[in-house]
Amino acid sequence: MAWGITVPLDGIPLAEHPALYRELADVGYTDLWSAESNGADAFTPLALAAAEPRLRLGTAIVSSFTRGPAVIAQSAAALASAAPGRFTLGIGASSNVIAAKWNDIAFEAPYSRTRDLVAFLRTAFTGARIKEHYDSFAVDGFRLGLVPEPAPKILVAALRERMLRLGARDADGVILNWVSPRDVRRVAAIVREENPAAEIVTRIMVCPSQDADAVRAMVRPLVTGYLTVPVYRAYQTWLGHGAALADMWEAWDAGDRKAAVAAVPAEVVDAVCVHGSPAECRERIAEYVQGGVTTPVLALLPIGPDPREALRSLAPSS
């Protein structure tokens, strides 16, 4: 079974990650998936693992807004060539915060931008010259000079139904975030209806700690930081969690950040964050797989034991 981990790991310098990656492969991890927000970029941590043949590499995700289409194709082709057959490109719209507030790029028509980028990348990876006016951007005369063989798979970070169907239909599958095992069952049904063979990668916050109060105290600010962003707020409403998050949203909209954090119910934290003993964590992650996830990707939270110790305790071989 696939068993991934989100990289890079907090508290461990990037220079030490190659040795860590070998250790992760030794204890049964199969995948490394990079996250890109305000820390490392999506490609560099994976490039450090290209020489480890036991690990698949994936981006979760590269924003479809913050790089030009040609630059995304070049970066993906380089990594796919460094790790032939082991790299998967995860792309997605990201959010207005990252695109507009942090990068001064208009966050417009995210569905169209992501759809058009998938179409462009499919063609670019063949080495064809592209002169095309898509709905959301135009490319005039680009040809990829380093053509990867094989071409990397493309996954789409998807929230609601249109993007889920796009990822299943036009790409090779989807990447999910901020979901519970019950949410996954609903989402997987939509994806499988569109394409039974589609991959479903899911990032899962995990903390092998039995101090539930400490875990909840750490996760509540993360919930408010993410689930108040408009795209995630709409997503959680679509999933049916509007009532549970209503008090948090009301406090946030009123400008009371402290009250918003305090208003996050324990059941919301427990739904989106796996915690408990390592054995309990592995059992809960298995629920995601039973719900339709093909590749669970653990996002280790910085609490409790040393990250290396925590990863060993959560490994499939444990």
Rank of each mutant, 00 (worst) to 15 (best):
V174Y: 08
S64D: 13
I91R: 02
G92A: 12
G92N: 12
V118A: 07
T6C: 15
A279F: 03
A243Q: 15
R216V: 07
R143F: 05
P305V: 04
G167A: 12
A73C: 12
D306L: 05
A82F: 07
L55G: 00
W252M: 14
I175E: 11
Y232Q: 15
A251S: 10
A119N: 08
Y21H: 00
W249T: 03
L239Y: 06
E16T: 01
F87Q: 08
E23Q: 11
P84K: 12
A243H: 12
A42D: 11
A266Q: 13
A315L: 01
D170C: 04
P84S: 07
V223H: 01
L245A: 02
A100S: 07
P307S: 09
A99G: 03
M163V: 13
D172A: 11
T114K: 00
L57W: 04
S136H: 00
R113M: 10
V147A: 12
G11D: 13
Y21S: 08
H241A: 14
Q290Y: 03
V264N: 00
P69R: 05
Y21P: 01
P296T: 04
R22Y: 07
V147K: 12
S318Y: 08
R282D: 14
V201S: 10
Y235I: 13
R192Y: 04
I12D: 12
Y111P: 03
T59A: 05
G291A: 08
M205A: 08
F137D: 14
G141N: 10
L311D: 10
I204A: 10
S209L: 13
C207D: 09
Y226D: 15
V223M: 08
Y134G: 11
R284V: 02
H275W: 11
A40M: 12
D31R: 00
G39C: 07
R129P: 07
D10N: 13
E108P: 00
V268E: 14
P208W: 01
D26N: 09
T126I: 13
G255K: 09
D306I: 02
E280C: 01
T237W: 13
A315T: 01
R233N: 15
A100H: 01
G292L: 01
R113K: 12
T202V: 03
G68R: 13
L239I: 07
R162Y: 09
A212H: 08
A251Q: 13
A151E: 13
E309S: 08
G304Y: 02
I72Q: 08
V97K: 11
I154Q: 01
W238Q: 14
H241I: 07
R129L: 14
E16D: 14
L314W: 02
A188G: 06
S64N: 06
A78N: 11
R160A: 10
G85W: 11
V274I: 04
S75M: 14
V268S: 03
V201K: 00
W238P: 05
T295V: 04
L227Y: 09
A158H: 03
E309M: 06
P316Y: 01
E36H: 00
R233C: 14
A50I: 06
Y288D: 15
A138M: 12
Y288F: 14
G92Y: 06
R216I: 04
V174L: 03
D140Y: 01
S94D: 09
N103C: 05
G85H: 06
P53C: 05
F125R: 09
A157R: 07
P265G: 09
G173R: 04
